[in-house]
């Protein structure tokens, strides 16, 4: 009787262990498929919960963000929908759909924010970050630097137009240095500043990071900000933001989602 009992307990432990292991090893795609089923069935809250589990595990894809955005749009949480569509837009496979969805969501907000054009330098930096990337820029700069150095060194040994070799070597080295500095600056800008979307209905943007501080402007759901992480670092729970109309102020972190 005792042996039978022990065997039963052992089997039970193995069964529980195996089932726990199989659950723990559930692939991102399986969770994603499960979430998609919930989304199709109209269980938006459950679908969001599953999608967010994937996001929390740092396993992401454009499809995940797009579907999260759609789920939030279905429950009329347009600020969060906009945030996830913006994330999905940075993935090549979902960029087109996400931009289309973004256009739609933008049209649904009851209040639209005026947009002050960015400075050309900021536009250039943003373009470099979005289209080339600081790391790719750095790689290109380093390759060019090596080529420039080789050309420059060659003029010491080759009798074929050494003057031109020297000059072209120096030009290439100078250009590569410029590209490397630009890549560092682009990385600095992308690390210091982030885009953020307001996800609650209404919140005051304040002059100081205090609830009783004087009001700069009212912000509404869907407004986009540029968060200055460097300045925000000193005030936990608050973000120093630039609104799209060019105004600066402080906003509680709980009101926004930072990309």
């Amino acid at each position: 009787m005792a042996i039978l009992c022990r065997k039963t307990i052992l089997l039970l432990i193995i069964f529980v262990g195996c089932s726990a292991l199989s659950h723990a090893q559930q692939s991102p795609q399986a969770i994603f498929d499960n979430a998609n089923e919930k989304l199709e069935a109209g269980n938006y809250q459950q679908a969001i919960s599953l999608y967010k589990n994937l996001e929390a595990e740092n396993t992401v894809s454009g499809a995940l963000y797009l579907n999260l955005g759609i789920s939030y749009q279905r429950i009329d949480s347009l600020g969060k929908a906009k945030y996830y569509f913006m994330k999905a837009a940075s993935f090549e496979e979902t960029s087109g759909k996400a931009k289309q969805a973004l256009k739609f969501v933008e049209s649904q907000f009851s209040r639209q924010s005026a947009v002050l054009p960015k400075l050309p330098w900021d536009v250039a930096t943003a373009w470099l970050q979005d289209n080339i990337g600081a790391e790719n820029l750095l790689i290109a700069g380093i390759i060019l630097l090596n080529i420039g150095v080789l050309i420059f060194v060659a003029h010491w040994f080759l009798s074929w137009h050494p003057r031109y070799l020297r000059l072209s070597g120096l030009i290439v080295i100078g250009l590569s240095a410029l590209i490397i500095v630009t890549s560092f600056y682009t990385r600095y800008v992308s690390e210091r500043y982030s885009k953020a979307v307001m996800v609650t209905q209404k919140v005051p943007v304040l002059e100081k990071p205090q609830q009783e501080a004087s009001l700069i402007s009212q912000a509404f759901e869907g407004y986009t900000f540029t968060v200055d992480h460097y300045r925000s670092k000193s005030k936990p729970g608050w973000s120093y933001v630039r609104m799209s109309n060019g105004l600066y102020g402080w906003i509680p972190n709980s009101e926004i989602l930072i990309l």
């Binding site: 795609q29 199709e40 396993t59 894809s61 454009g62 759609i70 496979e93 969805a101 630097l145 990385r187």
Partner: peptide, 30 residues
């Protein structure tokens, strides 16, 4: 919404943020 959700296979990535100075190729290249 004029966009339907993606229901099929997705390509999964794990975002990593690395510092330039922590890459070996940066130091080799310099």
């Amino acid at each position: 919404l004029p966009v339907s959700p993606v229901m099929g296979l997705a390509s999964w990535t794990t975002p990593t943020s690395s510092n330039f100075l922590s890459n070996w190729w940066f130091w080799v290249g310099i």
